[in-house]
Design a protein around this nucleic acid. Structure first.
Lengths: 150, 150
DNA sequence: ATAGCACCCGTACCTTGGTACGGAAGCAAG
DNA sequence: CTTGCTTCCGTACCAAGGTACGGGTGCTAT
């Protein structure tokens, strides 16, 4: 029972990991690994009709890559493209850089949109002393009138 | 043919609008109005077994309210709560103000998260001269190593 | 009176990123 | 050899916020 929760599968030493081993090593759930397979983000190992699949250690690295890219704001679709770029020896680093810059521009737009919301809310909140019934609330009134700012 | 695309339904003058009239006046699609009904965001008018429903003009104002609140970053669930507050004479303006402040804090957190992403991307992009194959790209390398910042 | 929108209704579908379920079968320990 | 954890596989479900469809009916103008 020494290794029961630690590593059930390592039957043949350096061969490969089972899906559970990959998931633990990469810090995601088994279902997430399966989900990434379905999305084509990770290559599926030879799929025996019966029995278990064994994954190469690169799969763990690939999932970590996905995790990190997600933290940087890339969607799974974009990550799939990054993974393709990474594999394609004909593509240059400039392509990757361009994706990063585009994502930064994307993030800037989101930040600006949120900033506009924030300012609009701050304006409304400052117009409201927080007293009286909701029927006289300047915030609600402003929303009812709708400024059609567009 | 003068009014054919302008207002098909106004049979009885001041009575009420059909769903299409509401949708046009509020600037949303008919399906969206139906969707808001299902979500309980707008009250459904008396529903005749057969024939058409007529909506009071307040429905248009309500949908505009929803639109405006959405622009301010509220979810439909939160908007439903705002609408309840608006209707409840026992609630005070302070409640509404609190929602607005909470939403601002919410937005601040999102902005900070995006700012972190942006800075991380900027760091990676500045480390990459945009030359060479993807196999030597500092951006991809950094993602592969995964900094586990957390 | 009939063409032709507009409306009614339930239901299915879309995107994004997973999570959960249920039955069958593998595999190691006790 | 049986128990019990994994794995395999398809499929369904979640949140959010709609959009689309199909079949049936209402209403209005020509």
């Amino acid at each position: 029972m020494e290794r029961s929760r630690k590593s059930p599968p390592p039957a043949t030493e350096g061969a490969g990991l089972t899906i559970g081993g990959v998931a633990r090593a990469a810090g995601v759930g088994v279902e997430t690994v399966r989900f990434y397979e379905r999305r084509g983000l990770i290559e599926q190992p030879e799929r025996p009709m019966f029995g278990r699949r064994t994954y190469p250690p690169e799969t763990v690295a690939r999932i970590r890559f996905i995790r990190r890219a997600k933290e940087l704001g890339f969607t799974l679709k974009e990550i799939a493209e990054l993974l393709e770029l990474r594999m394609d020896p004909g593509k240059s680093c400039a392509e990757v850089r361009a994706r990063a810059l585009a994502k930064m521009a994307d993030i800037d737009r989101k930040i600006e949109a949120l900033g506009r919301m924030r300012r609009a809310l701050a304006d409304l909140a400052s117009a409201c002393r927080g007293r009286g019934p909701t029927s006289e609330c300047p915030i609600l009134e402003a929303m009812e009138e709708g400024e059609e700012h567009e």
